[in-house]
Design a binder for these strands. Sequence first.
DNA 1: CACATTCTGTCGGGTAACCGACAATTACGC
DNA 2: GCGTAATTGTCGGTTACCCGACAGAATGTG
Lengths: 190, 190
Amino acid sequence: MDRRVRKSQEAIMEALISLMAEKEFEKITINEIAERADVNRGTVYAHYTDKYHLLDLCIETHLDQLIASCMPLEGLNEPAYPTKDSLLRVFTMLEKHTAFYTTLLTSKGVPALRSRLLEMICLGIRQQYTDLQFPAGVDQEVRIQFMASATVGVIEWWFTNPVSYSAEDITGQLWAMLEQNQMLPGKQLV
Amino acid sequence: MDRRVRKSQEAIMEALISLMAEKEFEKITINEIAERADVNRGTVYAHYTDKYHLLDLCIETHLDQLIASCMPLEGLNEPAYPTKDSLLRVFTMLEKHTAFYTTLLTSKGVPALRSRLLEMICLGIRQQYTDLQFPAGVDQEVRIQFMASATVGVIEWWFTNPVSYSAEDITGQLWAMLEQNQMLPGKQLV
DNA sequence: CACATTCTGTCGGGTAACCGACAATTACGC
DNA sequence: GCGTAATTGTCGGTTACCCGACAGAATGTG
């Protein structure tokens, strides 16, 4: 992608996030976004039809990064199913964009991120677990919904609560709980 | 100035400073500068003939900012001669660009900044003191040189020493010494 | 309501940055 | 030494951004 396009988009998205931390989404104007991004107003319209479109792509971009971060690393002999390392990579990415996630998870009137996040995590789990054996007795889709909801809940709590664990800490705790509930195939496979 | 020009120049200058904090000036290449600035290599050449030119303009830009910061503020009834407030503005500006000044004042082989800084301060003092009475017995140019050298020395010490006073603190101390040596016209005028 | 102000979305002309390529020079390792 | 790689400085075609202007919609203030 052209260097200029990337810079403009990054600046515009960052501007929106920083504005959303100050005032509610509906009160934000394209003018403000352009000004904060230090970009001509026309440039905003060149990339996005309106601020709703911008918000959508903003979410999409961050979730894509999140997906990429939990993909098994090539050359490191990582298995195709989730590991504690891949989970840590996700939380590290979340931590890196704290401003974005705290804003969009707490900002009232814009619950768009939470549902997209849950959706994304379900999809990720479903893909990674497709070839694996699970303990019997529970429908696989129910199990996936269970795990995804629990994970999203922990993420939300992590961002909205003043007590701030590090990415390593929270990863360790979440992983322990998932293991404790025998919802990871590790024990069957390793 | 065109928004794009400003952004490019800021990015390039900042890249040079950050590189100078890591390696000596002669080892730095245009490629590295462009890469760090996230700018096409051609853009560097569009603004500067070579890295020496870039370093010069870099120094010039920062000194211009410094000069602007010590100008008497309009509308605040500030006198035309230096005040403690104007000195504080200078140190605040210095503090704001700590990375630049510490790098350029400590980096061996590039004593360009120190001499330009002394020169600039002499000029500033000479201009601001042009209409004022001084205690007799000392040539005015000698006095100016004395004050400027002392000031530059304090600035150098401020940046190169691990003990870090705030801009307010160091301003207070320097002002006290200048007053103590009766080198400020304040007592004669006020 | 009338009025002023701000915001919106779009357009066209101008310009700076991008990118890839090039030959010439310098730096480096065998 | 000699060959390879990196750096330098320049160029031309392409693209994205800037800027000012515009009419229409929305907002808000008397």
